[in-house]
Write a protein that binds this DNA or RNA. Structure first.
Lengths: 250, 250
DNA sequence: TAGGTCGGATTGTCCGACAATCATGGTCGC
DNA sequence: GCGACCATGATTGTCGGACAATCCGACCTA
């Protein structure tokens, strides 16, 4: 759009190891290689591509980190099915590097949580509600331990997410989750009766699933996240600071 | 949670090339290496890590694909700041491999678009509105060319997204965008006056930004996406089919 | 100052090698 | 016959060295 007509495009020689990676990736994306299928041995790939083993290995490493290929127990290569965690990890690290603020994180989490809870209200099964109840019970047990509460809170929202049965949304939410929940610990600790309020919110959320009451679910989602935000501010932290300062991913 | 206390954890020897990658990644995430900084030459890394150059190179390749490091014009290595595109590409490929359905995609897009448009309504500047207007004008010009319309539609929503000024949401939306917009082409073609309706929706969306009318924005976002869905169905496609059948990412 | 030349540095690729580990098949004991 | 055990080959991870292509920077020249 913005580029005017230039005579020649940039010339970019593609290294052989990249071509190896792309060739394998194409096979996977096209469906000719399916998750779980073994990729050949290195020697075999050397033969097929006609390049040196070092080159093949570099190409494989390119794909390895993304989860497209993975080494099974015997270190043999197989096609992998990249899981959200892995992608979310990379995404949340990228967000850190971009120095996104907690405000952005909070806004996005609010929006995504509201979307997620609506689907959950529509689709929750008794089993899923029982799972959520169990989580609440465990949280009550652990009320004195903010770290445990934060972990259980994270699990609660994960369960809630699964209840929505929408993997796209799940994937979209996970980077935010990874960045936000480490601070739940702090937020809960900072608020008077923080754990108490958290548990109540969870209870009301489950109750709204039971009643299939979307408005109630939205209300308590908002309250729950507002509480988190208040705790965050009460702990003396600034919503406009970049996220990497707090989440110590050492 | 589920694991009981076992005496010994699984012993997993970590290959040297992974340790190289992790060491570099740690430096980046800790902030000691910042985006743009040069990573040493391979020879230097060989010296520092005390491993062979092949090993160093394999380690570097691990990071390269994720965008953590990238080769600048002179092929020298530098710390990169992974952009959304790259992550989104990986994410959308993963969604394809997981065979998510168009229904999931549509639901997520609906939720994310509504969230996004609300922020845009709050924050739109005259310049941004002008940019959106320009896009609409271009779309009108190209009305006879469904492919061009689809591309401009994609650009329109990208602009809208930027207007929201929330990078977390931006990142969350992009995988869905990448998967959904290739089919806009088909959807527009299938509907009577498809391009016309698309342009009208865009116009009303911009108008609601101008008026800062959130309800209006939400309404037209819903209509716009419902139109897309109708076109999709009218083209004889099934919402519950996995996304990879249509998007020919050859 | 613009352009050309040259040498050193760096990357991409290749070759060959070896220890450690894994898979496999055969052997042995019961 | 069946399971435990072992030898052998295959495979990976790592190493050392090598060379062409390219890039950078300094130097030179018109």
């Amino acid at each position: 759009m913005s580029e005017s007509a230039e005579k020649f495009g940039r010339i970019t020689p593609v290294p052989a190891y990249q071509m190896v990676a792309e060739a394998i990736e194409r096979e996977i994306l096209s469906g000719r290689l399916r998750p779980g299928d073994p990729i050949g041995t290195e020697a075999e790939l050397v033969r097929q591509f006609g390049v040196n083993r070092s080159t093949v290995r570099e190409g494989i490493r390119l794909l390895e980190q993304g989860g497209m290929v993975h080494r099974d127990s015997s270190r043999r290569l197989a096609v992998g099915l990249p899981h959200y965690d892995r992608l979310a990890t990379r995404a949340s690290r990228a967000l850190m590097l971009h120095q996104v603020s907690f405000r952005e994180l909070w806004e996005a989490t609010m929006a995504l949580s509201l979307a997620s809870i609506e689907l959950a209200v529509e689709r929750a099964t008794p089993e899923e509600i029982a799972g959520l109840d169990a989580n609440i019970a465990a949280t009550e047990e652990a009320m004195d331990d903010p770290a445990a509460v934060a972990a259980l809170d994270s699990e609660f929202h994960l369960l809630l997410e699964k209840t929505g049965r929408n993997r796209v949304l799940e994937l979209a939410r996970e980077p935010s989750n990874m960045l936000i929940y480490p601070t739940t610990n702090v937020a809960v600790r900072a608020t008077e009766h923080g754990a108490q309020r958290l548990i109540e919110a969870h209870r009301m959320l489950v109750e709204s699933l039971r009643r299939r009451d979307i408005e109630m679910a939205r209300l308590w989602t908002r309250r729950h996240l507002t509480d988190w935000r208040k705790g965050f501010e009460k702990a003396g932290m600034d919503l406009d600071q970049p996220v990497d300062l707090v989440t110590g991913m050492a």
